[in-house]
Design a protein around this nucleic acid. Structure first.
Lengths: 223, 223
DNA sequence: GACTTTAGTCACAGAAAGTGACTAATTCGC
DNA sequence: GCGAATTAGTCACTTTCTGTGACTAAAGTC
């Protein structure tokens, strides 16, 4: 392993940890290691011998006390001169965690996406990229379930989708689509949430299924 | 600008240039600069003061003689010890170019994706990532048109989609979807291609359109 | 001129999606 | 206790979209 202490690290790994906090998405920030007055995304300088993915998982776990339920690289960022460290280039990851079970370690705090503290330009790009990545993955992989606890009501699931897609969904359509995809299965528990009829709890339990063979959907293209 | 000649470059930028060559997708490879016997993706060591995107565009243009019609970063790769250079980390881009107008510079050759030469593990991952990225972007942005010359027949367009999606499409459905999205407009030219009725030429001309407000499509989720 | 080949269109059936209305089970106010 | 309010869950109807085969059109081939 080459000596790195004598030169600036070649790259950093930065993680955008996202959760669903009430009616907002929220991102985890930590007090900067160099500047204690500023908030920054959790990050570390590169270490030899560790894969990018493993490094990102470790960084997330260090900030959160537990590993994220999903993590994916969103790309390399080099624009913006001021990274919290002095890395030439930063590899950003987006990670999801259910809010219920997440208790950030001291010095780490969730910020609603609408109310994010001042950041370096580079980390600001990363946050934007992370939100965009979540929305882009949403209809390709069941990542929404990674933001929920093991059991949940269908209303909670729908509210989460409405939050992520930023649009209202019709209850009957939502459930019909869910059933057709056989992604969830009911438990025998019910939860009474204040007023109103209690809701049945479901768990994420995707069944093997042949993806219905469809033609091209040009209407989804954004020109 | 810091002196870089005295130390190994911190990162490289590598480009997966893709075109549609007859019945196959093809990727551009160049004779390795260090090892003239091996083929490699076009790449360059990092240069200060140039954005990743600009660097990738320049690399593509250097190999091809003209800029690609579309380019996008697919991520940072650090696994696999042997990069053609000695960069710790490599940022890969995927770029598209129509085959008709592309004439690679000497030392650069198209290889069908089914018949790719031996590569370093890292660059092999990049090629796989590039193909996956193209297929993933296909129903989110009209990138297929970036593989076609300015005018084309609808049969050519359909064959291209069949190539990219690796499945047959029904002619009437394909055209109906195309019309609904108003992505192309007819020119007043026709092309006679051997036997059979001549085909009308179209050009890519996306019209502003409200994306039909739809619910969640769980059936597209791959569990 | 009949046959083949490719382009382009139509129309119908079935599937999927949008939508409002309905029933069910609980809490709250009185 | 009881009706209003609230949330969950389901149904049925309509509209839209998609899969599909069959048809017409215009060229070349023999």
């Amino acid at each position: 392993m080459r000596d790195r202490s004598s030169r600036s690290p070649s790259h950093s790994v930065d993680v955008v940890l996202v959760t669903a906090m009430g009616k907002d998405l929220a991102v985890l920030f930590t007090r900067g290691t160099t500047d204690r007055e500023r908030w920054a995304l959790p990050w570390k300088a590169a270490q030899g011998g560790e894969s990018l993915h493993a490094a990102a998982t470790r960084i997330a776990e260090d900030a959160l006390g537990e590993p994220p339920t999903w993590i994916e690289q969103i790309g390399a960022f080099a624009d913006g001169k001021r990274h919290p460290g002095d890395a030439d280039i930063s590899v950003a990851f987006v990670a999801l965690v259910p809010h219920e079970t997440a208790s950030p370690r001291p010095g780490n705090t969730w910020f609603a996406v609408a109310d994010i503290p001042p950041l370096s330009p580079r980390q600001k790009s990363m946050v934007e990229g992370a939100i965009a990545a979540i929305q882009a993955r949403l209809d390709q992989a069941p990542i929404a379930f990674r933001l929920l606890p093991p059991t949940f009501t269908l209303s909670e699931l729908q509210q989460l989708y409405e939050l992520l897609l930023a649009k209202r969904l019709h209850k009957a359509s939502f459930r019909r689509a869910l059933q057709a995809a056989s992604l969830v299965e009911p438990t025998d528990e019910w939860r009474s949430e204040g007023r109103g009829r209690p809701a049945q709890l479901y768990r994420y339990a995707p069944k093997k299924k042949r993806r219905t063979q469809r033609g091209v959907r040009f209407d989804l293209l954004q020109s």
